[in-house]
Amino acid sequence: MIEQVLLFTLLTSFLVAVISSPFFIPFLRRLKFGQSIRDEGPKSHQKKSGTPTMGGIIIVLALVAGTYAMTAKFFTVTAETNLLLLVTLGYGLIGFLDDFIKVVKKRNLGLTSKQKLLGQLVIAALFYWGLMDIGISTKINIPGTDFGFELGWFYPVFVLFMLIGASNAVNLTDGLDGLLAGTAAIAFGAFAVLASTMLHYEAAIFSVAVVGAVLGFLVFNAHPAKVFMGDTGSLALGGAISAIAILTKMELLLVIIGGVFVLETLSVMIQVTSFKLTGKRVFKMSPLHHHYELSGWSEWRVVMTFWLVGLLFASIGIYLEVWL
């Protein structure tokens, strides 16, 4: 039963994304919602300037359609499903406002960092309040073991850190055509497998809906991209994957399954720290995918390599949770 539901969910969100994109992309182009490219970024990216952005709206609409269509048909829409959608839509809205300001002002700066952080904190606080309402455990499990530790009063801080950290980490990964869409599909696919195995069917359905949505979007986002997801998509995906990890009590496993996102974030932290302390840069450019670009790799080679690394991390995560 659940296998058929997951398959129908995947197909529904995929088809919604694929069918709506050819209508939505020209609409964005007519509104002149084009991407502004950073002057300090790789010079090869300047030709991408003007490519329609805010395509994350397609992803969000498709995953919501897939989630509600299948959940409402085969199950009761639960508080867990609504919490997942709260974080996804909330962080997606923050990203939308950021993208909207960028395209209207024709610059690469949208919301200020303080404004963005405030919005993320508000959504995270609402999510935590919902977690307490359903009585979620404040114990953290160690992947691959039967051990765990109780966070108690520190758990809400941990939840806030996870949501904000994951959304920003995923956002950093969105820098090449198809890079984030592919790595996100792999990571959410891993959580779908684990959630289904652990009988967290709401999270499994939601995860599969995201996979279908980003794969449908990838049809138009693969190199050369016809549309970018923008912060609308990347922040929504980052919030969604951390919310899934929290609701299924696989918080620490997110670090492994989302290993690509972690590496991208670490590269930025290392670059900034090194430059401030020594005046020297460790990488040619951060986040990490730009380092390989400037090392002579083609964009497609970088993307494919990161997809394979993401698949390796996802496989390790599944192995630790299921077979150990």
Rank of each mutant, 00 (worst) to 15 (best):
I164E: 01
Y155P: 06
A169S: 15
G152M: 12
V157N: 00
G148I: 10
F149S: 11
V159S: 13
F127H: 07
I134D: 02
T138D: 11
V159W: 07
Q120G: 15
A124L: 00
W153H: 13
L109A: 04
I164S: 11
I142G: 12
K116E: 09
D146K: 11
F161N: 02
K114Q: 12
L111A: 09
K116M: 07
F127W: 06
K139G: 02
L118F: 15
V170T: 13
I123A: 02
I134S: 04
F127E: 04
G135Y: 05
L118I: 15
L126F: 14
G148M: 08
L111W: 07
L160E: 00
V159R: 09
G110H: 01
N171H: 04
P156E: 01
Q115S: 07
F161Y: 14
N108I: 12
Y128T: 10
N108R: 10
F161M: 13
F149K: 10
V159Q: 10
S167I: 07
A169W: 03
V122T: 14
V170I: 14
A169D: 05
V159K: 11
G130V: 09
N141R: 11
I140Y: 06
I123F: 05
P143G: 11
G144M: 03
G144I: 03
F149G: 08
G135F: 05
L118D: 01
P143S: 13
I136E: 00
F161T: 13
D146H: 07
F147N: 11
L172I: 14
L126Q: 03
N171W: 05
N168D: 05
A166F: 10
I134L: 12
M132T: 14
N168P: 04
W129N: 10
F127V: 08
F161V: 15
I136S: 04
I136K: 12
G110W: 03
G119D: 01
K139T: 10
